[in-house]
Amino acid sequence: MTDDDIIICRCEDITLRQIRELIAQGYHTIDEIKRVSRAGMGPCQGRTCRQLIARELAGALGVPIEQVEMPTFRPPSRPVLLSTIARGEADE
């Protein structure tokens, strides 16, 4: 299997090979992989790749998927323009 051609994070173009290399290097949580590769930091905020990465981690570490630590979820959960936030709260 050419894991170079398997996209895990569509937003940031991260392949299965990159994820596997990171796990081999000792990045063993979704948050660590996110911070070092940007997987999950694109417009969809990990909705597509999070479970795929979790499954890959579970397989590599030999643990059930529920034991893979989930990343931290912070607002905004969807992309918001900086200019929107900079303008501040709209008058109601």
């Binding site: 905004p76 969807r78 918001v80 200019s83 303008r87 501040g88 709260e89 709209a90 109601e92």
Partner: peptide, 10 residues
């Protein structure tokens, strides 16, 4: 926090 077409609402 809500975003309404470029408006930021709490």
């Amino acid at each position: 926090t809500l975003e309404d077409g470029g408006k930021f609402i709490k």
